[in-house]
Structures are given as structure tokens and as C-alpha cells.
């Protein structure tokens, strides 16, 4: 089903609702997703708007899961003005600081990147990740629907590519799209360090919010997000502050359940699902 975009998302062009299986809970449960594939690059401001209505970006595609009866994937962001690193996060900073030279530039697609990506996919999603071809890499991370997409490339003092972060620079902040790193460096907690480094960039540049994508309670790979201080979760209308007390905390559970309910109501208006 393909239909005109809601008024708030006019810049995105037609919205397509398609079926798939859930990529967060990888147990084969059916998923429904609203996709937009803008004709040309949309402005950073239009993307900011979409992001603040719960959408995410993958390549030139913007999407929002709209599964009937489930909205566990809640957009999550950190207010970097309020953020304080936890004790364990400070330990990660101490461990990693000074090891890498991080440069920002437009996304690159070359053998070095694809090789590292393949290695990371193999470790993270053995046998079921994105196939590490030039085409799939380009479509996933090399291309973008917006002009604000940048790559942060991490190299060690010998110049070896150790990690790559793809970020979107937005008026309201910085959105992390993907981060992959050399599995040989798994002891360094680079995923956490990358988020902390990007929060630092937000502060340097005066971009207040750091968007981490979806917080998915119950999906193992997304749980680390709940440990961030000054977090906010999207309930379809507003960003709700979320105490950094982990996903077992009764108040956190209640807040997330309410956000899920309200999100489904808001999405039903914006992304009508086929009958």
C-alpha cells in the first residue's frame, strides 16, 4: 500500500507500508513498517521533523515500524546539556582516550570500509547480517536521503581503520545511524565510547540532542541505550525524560508502557495501515 504522506511529512513523498519480520526481536515475528523514499535529498530540517515523529534513516530510506499491537521500539535521545557519564562510562573513556584519531568527512565506500564492515557483521550477526558487498554497503551507509550525513573514521596511530560511525547532523542535534568496529578491539567497549564521543561532539557544536535510534526493551543489542543518563523517550507527541535506572525499574517499565500506547495512537493517524 502506498499513499500520500501526512501533512507533517510532506517533504518525504509517498509513504509505503510493507510487511516483513521484526529485525529487533529476531524470532520471526511479523513486522509492519512505513517507508518513505524521498525523490531527492530532503533538507536537514525536514529530516529533523521526521526524526522527531519517530522515523529513522537507512541509506536513502526513512522508516518507522508500525506493527499492530507492538511499539517496543521507542525513539530514544539524550539531552547532552544534562548528560553526566556514569562511573562505568567514565572508565570506558579512560580506557579508550588517546588511542584513536577520529576524522569527519563524507561517507566513503572502499575496500577498507567494506572489509571492516564484513568482519563486524560476521561477529555481530553471524550468518544473517547484511551481505558485505559494495552495493549493499553503499545502499546502507554510503548513500543518504539528507545532506547532513557524515562519517567519523577512527584510525590507530599506524593509520589502520578501526571503527566507522555514520552520523546525521541536524538542527536539533546529532543522530547516530550506525557504528561498526574491529572485532579484535571488543575489550574496549567501543560502542559505548563512540556514543560518549558523539555526545561530546554535540556539546562542542552546540547541538543539544543525541539521537540513538530505537530503544527496544527486551532486544539484547539495544539494551545498552537504557544506561545513558538524561535519556528521553518519544511517546508519539512528546519526548518523555527516562530515569537511567535500567529497564527493570518499575517506573521505567511504566513510562515505556505508556509511551508505547500513546505512540500507537499517534502512528495510527500518521501512518494508516492497510486493512
Amino acid at each position: 500500500m502506498i499513499y500520500p504522506p501526512p501533512d507533517e511529512l510532506l517533504a518525504l513523498g509517498p509513504i509505503f507500508v510493507g510487511g516483513d519480520t521484526c529485525s529487533y526481536f529476531r524470532d520471526g515475528r511479523p513486522a509492519r513498517t512505513a517507508y518513505a523514499q524521498p525523490f531527492r535529498q530532503i533538507s536537514d530540517a525536514a529530516y529533523d521533523k521526521a526524526l522527531n515523529l519517530g522515523m529513522r534513516r537507512s541509506g536513502e530510506l526513512l522508516y518507522r515500524p508500525i506493527c499492530p499491537g507492538c511499539r517496543k521500539c521507542q525513539p530514544f535521545r539524550v539531552d547532552t546539556q544534562r548528560f553526566q557519564p556514569s562511573k562505568s562510562q567514565r572508565r570506558v573513556i579512560r580506557k579508550c582516550e588517546g588511542r584513536f584519531e577520529i576524522r569527519m568527512h563524507n561517507p566513503r565506500v572502499d575496500a577498507e570500509h567494506i572489509e571492516l564492515f564484513a568482519k563486524y557483521q560476521q561477529m555481530q550477526h553471524p550468518g544473517r547480517g547484511i551481505e558485505p558487498s559494495e552495493t549493499s554497503y553503499r545502499g546502507f551507509l554510503g548513500e543518504s536521503a539528507i545532506p547532513g550525513t557524515r562519517e567519523l573514521s577512527w584510525r590507530d596511530p599506524q593509520g589502520k581503520l578501526c571503527a566507522v560511525g555514520i552520523i546525521d547532523l541536524l538542527p536539533s542535534g546529532l543522530s547516530t545511524v550506525y557504528f561498526f568496529w574491529d572485532p579484535d578491539l571488543r575489550d574496549l567497549s567501543l560502542g559505548t565510547y563512540s556514543a560518549l564521543a558523539e555526545i561530546d561532539l554535540c556539546r562542542q557544536w552546540g547541538r543539544r540532542y543525541y539521537y540513538l535510534g530505537y530503544l527496544v526493551p527486551g532486544a539484547a543489542t539495544m539494551n545498552y541505550k537504557a544506561s545513558f543518563d538524561a535519556g528521553e523517550v518519544w511517546d508519539g507527541t512528546d519526548w518523555i525524560p527516562l530515569p537511567a535506572r535500567g529497564l527493570e525499574d518499575p517506573e521505567v517499565i511504566a513510562l515505556l508502557a505508556q509511551a508505547e500506547r500513546k505512540s500507537m495512537q499517534a502512528d495510527a493517524r500518521r501512518f494508516p495501515s492497510p486493512k
Binding site: 509505503f16 510493507g18 510487511g19 516483513d20 517507508y35 523514499q37 530510506l61 545502499g139
Partner: peptide, 12 residues
Amino acid sequence: RFLPNPNYIPEF
């Protein structure tokens, strides 16, 4: 190639 690419939509 300027047309929307269905290849990115998993079911397509």
C-alpha cells in the same frame, strides 16, 4: 536510477 529503489524494502 533516479526512481525510488524497491531493493531497499526488504519484502521487495
